[in-house]
């Protein structure tokens, strides 16, 4: 049950734009931790087991990989731990920077996992169809393309199998030949499909002036409040960035802004911004259960 996804698309999009932008801009470990925690919480709340599996299977290795890869290429930093065979130093700062980059990468990946589910292509078209018609159509077509292509591939492989071209048997050369045939079929289908979609949208007058699009979205009082809240959070965090309340520097030595009342207030606002959908969904569930028990 995702109540946040039922808000107006503008609210949804604004939320993700803010959260993803701040996740990339704020390099303070506390902010990074907040963002990662909230991304995991939200994904786990709406996707359940799948999100946890995703974070374990993809995010953890990415974090470790970047933490190991960064010091192999960057040797800046004052704390020299040991020396590589090339004579360049391995520094603590570059390891920590790599770790931070890994956390950033997996946080943004997790946010996009939720983004893809909440901002469906109809919401995207609704938001951007009038401002950037061509771009939003291309985007939603591209996003739709991957699952569509996967289904068509399965269909093609099955059809080929039924006429005696089984890709799973035979010599390597034979199998490669069949695979190339399937690839050629797929490429043809893709091109044809793209042209067909474009033609069909054109024939419907997509993107023409004065043309309206059907939508079931209403901008309610709760959306207004949510938007106001998001604007306030965005403004407050921007102020925080301007006074460098999130300051954290890795090179050449680690220097950071300590946690005091002012900086903590910025971190707290960031936390409630990131936690917004989780809190909304939790409140909704509690309300539902409360009604249920009264009956």
């Amino acid at each position: 049950m995702d109540r946040f996804a039922k808000y107006h698309p503008l609210v949804n999009f604004f939320y993700f734009a803010l959260v993803i932008a701040f996740s990339m801009a704020l390099r303070h470990p506390v902010s990074q931790g907040i963002s990662l925690l909230c991304a995991v919480c939200y994904a786990a709340q709406t996707e359940g087991k799948r999100a946890v599996l995703f974070s374990l299977k993809w995010c953890l290795p990415i974090m470790l990989l970047t933490a190991l890869m960064n010091p192999a290429f960057s040797h800046e930093g004052v704390t020299i731990l040991l020396y590589f065979p090339t004579g360049n130093p391995l520094t603590l700062e570059s390891i920590l920077y790599g770790l931070s980059a890994g956390v950033l990468l997996s946080t943004v990946m997790l946010w996009f996992l939720s983004f893809n589910r909440v901002i469906t292509s109809d919401k995207f078209i609704y938001l951007f169809g009038r401002i950037i018609p061509a771009m939003s159509l291309v985007l939603s077509m591209t996003l739709r393309f991957i699952p569509k292509c996967k289904a068509q591939l399965e269909l093609t492989v099955d059809a080929q199998k039924s006429i005696g071209r089984d890709m799973t048997q035979g010599s390597l050369l034979h199998r490669t030949k069949l695979a190339v045939t399937v690839l050629s079929i797929m490429v043809t289908w893709t091109l044809e499909n793209a042209i067909e979609s474009a033609d069909s949208m054109k024939s419907r007058g997509y993107g023409l002036k004065g043309r309206t699009a059907f939508s079931i979205y209403r901008f309610d009082e709760r959306d207004k409040l949510a938007l106001l809240f998001l604007t306030f959070c965005g403004f407050y965090l921007l102020c925080g960035m301007l006074v460098s309340a999130f300051g954290f520097r890795y090179f050449p030595s680690i220097r950071y802004v300590g946690l005091n009342t002012v900086t903590l207030s910025f971190q707290f606002v960031y936390l409630i911004l990131c936690m917004m959908p989780v809190v909304l969904n939790g409140a909704e569930e509690r309300k539902w259960k409360a009604i249920h028990s009264k009956m």
Binding site: V262, S265, V269
Partner: peptide
């Protein structure tokens, strides 16, 4: 919030 940021400035 405005007051806070002004103090920090």
């Amino acid at each position: 919030s405005l007051l806070f940021s002004l103090c920090a400035c």
